[in-house]
Computed example of a mutant assay.
Amino acid sequence: MNYKEINIGLLIKHLVIERQLSMSRICDFINCRPEDIEEVYRSKSFDTDKLLRWSKLLEYDFFRLYTQHLILYSSMSKFPKGKVAELPQFRKNIYTKEIIDFILGKINHGEMTKIEVMFRYNIPKTTLYKWVEKYNIKNIEGDKS
Score class of each variant (00 low, 15 high):
Y66W: 08
D47Y: 06
T67F: 06
K106W: 12
N136Y: 02
E59C: 08
L52E: 10
N31H: 10
R42N: 15
R19F: 08
E98G: 09
Q68Y: 14
R120Q: 14
M118A: 08
R91G: 09
K106F: 09
Y129I: 08
K97M: 09
I140H: 04
T96I: 04
K125W: 05
R42W: 03
F102N: 07
N31P: 00
F119R: 12
N136K: 14
C32E: 07
L52Q: 06
N2R: 03
N2C: 02
E38W: 06
Y3D: 12
W131H: 03
E35R: 14
N93S: 15
K97H: 14
F79C: 11
Y73E: 01
K78P: 00
K81P: 03
K83I: 15
G82V: 09
E5D: 15
I26Y: 05
R42I: 10
Q68M: 11
Y60C: 06
P124F: 07
N93M: 13
T126N: 05
E116M: 11
E59W: 02
D61E: 04
R53H: 03
F46H: 03
L72I: 05
L128M: 14
R91E: 11
L58Q: 05
W131E: 00
E38R: 12
N122C: 04
I100S: 00
N7D: 13
L65C: 05
L65Y: 12
L128A: 05
R53D: 15
L51K: 04
I30Q: 02
I137Y: 00
K50E: 09
M118W: 01
L21I: 04
P80G: 08
K114R: 11
K13W: 09
L128G: 02
H109K: 11
G82H: 02
L70F: 07
Y95T: 09
K4H: 13
K4L: 15
K125E: 13
K13V: 05
M1I: 14
F63A: 01
F63P: 02
E5C: 10
C32G: 06
K83T: 15
G82A: 06
I99L: 13
M112C: 11
E141Q: 07
I123S: 02
N93A: 14
K56E: 14
L52D: 03
R53C: 04
I123N: 05
W54I: 06
T96K: 03
R53T: 06
F79H: 14
E18H: 15
M76H: 10
I94T: 04
Y121V: 11
L10N: 13
L70S: 06
E86W: 04
K97F: 14
I103M: 10
S24N: 10
L72N: 04
I17E: 14
D28M: 03
V16D: 08
